[in-house]
Design a protein around this nucleic acid. Structure first.
Lengths: 219, 219, 219, 219
DNA sequence: AATGAATGAGTATTCATTCAT
DNA sequence: AATGAATGAATACTCATTCAT
């Protein structure tokens, strides 16, 4: 189910990193997530990674390069593949109805979030301050993901499973609901006592009925 | 409709601020929103405000105090009043159905966002890094707003306008949908060409049907 | 016995000081003694004195003027008078022998020290860094005190109570012994359990025998 | 005679210091001695040493650490060894009488002072403001030096060369007299025209007779 | 006489980055 | 590849002093 998600290690090992490089990346992820990019000093990262300050700059020309080295592959390797694989399944009738698709997507994103919590935090927090990140994000999400998603919506709209509203509105609503849930669950109130199964189901049903429109009970 | 929202100026003038103090606050809001709290230097704020750097510290003992002076009153003065006033209206039958209430709330928050865009950006971006902010937020939202909201949900659930699921789930879904919309509209893609009226309506309908559940067409 | 020593208050009231001025001086003495002149900030003094920062500078043009206002009168008013009065007594045969003179001087300086501990501390600590202070000190000690002291030594040398060595050597030895005692007693180890009477006597005897020379037992 | 005293250079080279570190220490000693610790700025030290200001903080985490790096080894390496070596000589009958011991000690401390004048000045001036320094000093002087000194006094008291008064009184008197002399000679009035040989002799004789008591001529 | 807001130079310390080893 | 000493600009914050009220 989540075989298309890689572990952090895989992310990092993907390119041939030295042991030191791995330690630097891991330390940087921890610190960036905890205190923010610009509140984290390179000397702090070096200390936590157990390497000399100079070593960081041997591998990453600037501190910002280090940030990009953490955040860019996440966008490149993980966001896109998911939708591409899953869209195929939808079109190939693997998911006969929206509900199954939503459930699959939610669980898939949940696993991704759990594995990449820190990195996602960094991404979300730093995007507003770094135009390059914004551009990277737009490129990956807007052009690759959203384009596919649009077809998917049309697919279900033809089957009358989704109300006739613009695809971008559907996208926004699904996105808001699923990520609203995951963010609350894993980033805002991870310490609360969640009944994951029930909450997931409610979220799916909320989206389902919301998108089905007034004739939802006809089904 | 939005007479209970104050302008930034009012916020700032609320307490007797000197002219210099006002300039400092305004400059700080601008810079914090644009580059983030810790990437903004006090010398930069001073320069932009046209005051000496020392002047900042005469009024705000630390840079963090300056942040709190910006963010704290927003939570104290704006978040709470809205719900308290509107809840009354609901219980006094001013809003006979959920739909009217949601619409009022969405418009009210929209106006608030438009007026306080920068400050809200700062709040959202800095909350993860400052436990005091998190605490302030919890205190205001969780204790004051959420408690009232719960009653409201029960009120509509008794009238069968909302499906029988836990209030916190309802809260999360409404919150996700409305703020998902507003954030996309004003913070992520403000430059896009939005049909506000239609989009608002779709969002309201999405929530309405989502919360009405399978029997929504009965109505 | 100590009627020629004035209290701090008198020192301060000597010149007509306003209430605020008095508080400033007292606060400054405390802080200068505790942390040193240059480690003490004027704002700190103002706070401790309960006055506005500007008030200090209304009375004392600079921080250094404040230091001088504390230290200068002590030298002017206290160091000189003592010796002048006591020298007269010696020459008038009030003290027939060295011993009585030494005892009187030690007790007199002890009282002075106890009353002006903080101010003396400041004087001692700051003299090395302020040439004006050094000059003031030399003027008072070297020219007034030492000159008189020289006569006194000669007086006792003529009476064969003091060995025939240069007056400045005698001065140095007496000074070292008495102030060595008082400094140890009141500044270095004030918390120790001192038998003042015995220790005073030992010090006097030490000086007496030291200055009497090899024939001291003849007496 | 003074082979157990090391030069500043040795002090500094003792631990492996880089060239820059040496320059920093030397500049700091000069400035601290001249203007006092807290009136000396790190930028001033850096400039005088010809290094970047940051370099100071690479080697000494804080300005105070720099002070301790200067003052602590002086206490550790120089104060203790002297007495230990010399005490042995006394007990081994190398110094048959007090006079020889005093003379040796005075000359030894004189050489030490001449070589370490600036550092001693710093120590003396800063001790009142830094409890850690006071503690270090007490540890070295009180526990190591004084304890040995006590035995020495008893040794001579048994031989009837020193009057029967408490060892701490003897200690104080010798200390006052010798350091009173050295301080006057090298720190207060170094510019005066001193006849060192005669003055030393007078000081020794003063102590000798002072401690011998009334029966001093019996000898 | 007294205030306290305002200043700009200065403070100790940290920063990201470079470079010789 | 890795180090860590070295840097100089930047950092948040403090300073003594001025001045309009």
């Amino acid at each position: 189910m989540s075989d298309h998600d890689l572990k952090i290690d895989e992310l990092i090992d993907g390119e041939d990193l030295t042991e030191k490089q791995r330690k630097i990346i891991i330390s940087a992820i921890e610190s960036f997530a905890e205190k923010g990019f610009s509140a984290t000093s390179t000397s702090e990262i070096a200390k936590k990674a157990g390497v000399a300050e100079g070593t960081i700059f041997r591998h990453y020309k600037t501190k910002k390069d280090l940030l990009l080295a953490i955040v860019a592959p996440m966008m490149a390797k993980f966001v896109a593949p998911f939708f591409i694989k899953d869209l195929k399944k939808v079109l190939d009738q693997d998911y006969e109805n929206v509900e199954d698709f939503l459930r699959a997507m939610l669980e898939n994103r949940r696993e991704f979030l759990i594995k990449n919590l820190a990195t996602v935090k960094i991404l979300v927090q730093e995007i507003p301050f770094h135009p390059e990140l914004k551009d990277l994000f737009k490129e990956h999400i807007a052009l690759k993901v959203y384009a596919l998603f649009e077809k998917l919506v049309e697919h279900y709209q033809e089957k009358d499973q989704i109300i006739q509203i613009p695809a971008y509105s559907v996208f926004r609503m699904i996105f808001s609901s699923i990520f609203g849930y995951l963010i609350a669950r894993y980033m805002i109130m991870p310490e609360a006592d969640w009944d994951d199964e029930a909450e997931t189901e409610r979220t799916i049903q909320f989206i389902m009925h919301g998108l089905a429109g007034p004739n939802s009970s006809k089904k």
